[in-house]
Design a protein around this nucleic acid. Structure first.
Lengths: 92, 92
DNA sequence: TAGACGTTTAGAAAATCTTCTAAATAAAGT
DNA sequence: ACTTTATTTAGAAGATTTTCTAAACGTCTA
């Protein structure tokens, strides 16, 4: 869970996620959308991978990245625990 | 949004949120739950405040902190945008 | 108004994160 | 085998974050 939140804490990484929502992309294709060196993008992708937010698959020369949305389910669950908390004692 | 994700990226802050889910607490009361100095806790509370995740209200000598769950609504919305994305072209 | 208590502000040290350049790895084509 | 293209790994510089101690602020009570 900590890796997940850490991964989401960076704007570039969130933008990457948005890109991958549209379609799977290669590392280079992703990098083209940013003003950042390829190694930096590679590093961000690595963090997203460790957080299991993205999955990578090599296809010959290219490595394709895609979103693993199941993690978001857990996240939504985490946030939903705060819904309507009646502050401990549960009234009456 | 960035402040929000940044605020959630720290384990101590997430624990504070969990505490406040149970009941409103003073800064000192919160600090008792951690092995961290009060100024550090104060700093974390400040970040949570700027992210509008918590609200503070002075009551005489004490300052009470409480959760503002409306922000979590937005967060859930953010995550839900990834639900079942048919990858751009929409099937067919 | 002096003292005590709860909390924050200031400023600095230490840890972590982001980014870079240079070099390595991997697959494909010639 | 060598070259080209796609991407990652290594190592370091710079920026941001976390934490600390010391000092200040705000409120209450004697």
């Amino acid at each position: 869970m900590n890796d997940t939140f850490k991964a989401l804490a960076d704007g570039t990484r969130r933008q990457i996620i948005q890109l991958l929502k549209e379609k799977d992309m290669t590392a280079g294709e992703i990098a083209e959308h940013f003003n950042i060196s390829k190694p930096s993008i590679s590093h961000h992708l690595n963090l997203l991978k460790r957080a299991e937010i993205v999955i990578d698959e090599r296809k010959g020369q290219f490595i394709y990245y895609s979103l693993n949305t199941t993690v978001f389910q857990d996240l939504v669950g985490w946030f939903l625990q705060f819904k309507d908390g009646t502050k401990g004692g549960e009234e009456k």
